[in-house]
Amino acid sequence: MNPLHGYLLLAALLFSIGLAGAVTRRNAILVLVGIELMLNAANLNFIAFWRYGPSPEALSGIMFVIFSIGVAAAEAAVGLALIIAIYRHYRTVNVDQVNSMKG
């Protein structure tokens, strides 16, 4: 078995765990955690393809992951601020109970 195979399968497994968690958990914070896991799985794919790809000296995988980490940090900050605003309004973070747009 090729090392690239191992990394790709690990990333697929992490993505599936994040997806299952984001779909099943009802707490908005844990939905966000699931999304973070999926983003990290994608980052692992980028790094694995860069390391075992045809032209590693171009550094394209590393650059993509650096920008991806920056976007993920912005997403986490805004997402958690939204969750706190929703909690102030509804007094709950259960995504099943946050079901009206008017409030």
């Binding site: 914070i29 955690v33 990290n40 980490i69 958690l80 259960n94 099943d96």
Partner: peptide
């Protein structure tokens, strides 16, 4: 970024909100 900032943000969000264990 992740261990130093995102994980701390998530801990803060957990501490600032209250989840109902029953549901």
């Amino acid at each position: 970024v992740y261990i130093g900032a995102v994980a701390i943000l998530i801990v803060f969000a957990i501490l600032l909100t209250r989840s109902d264990e029953q549901t």
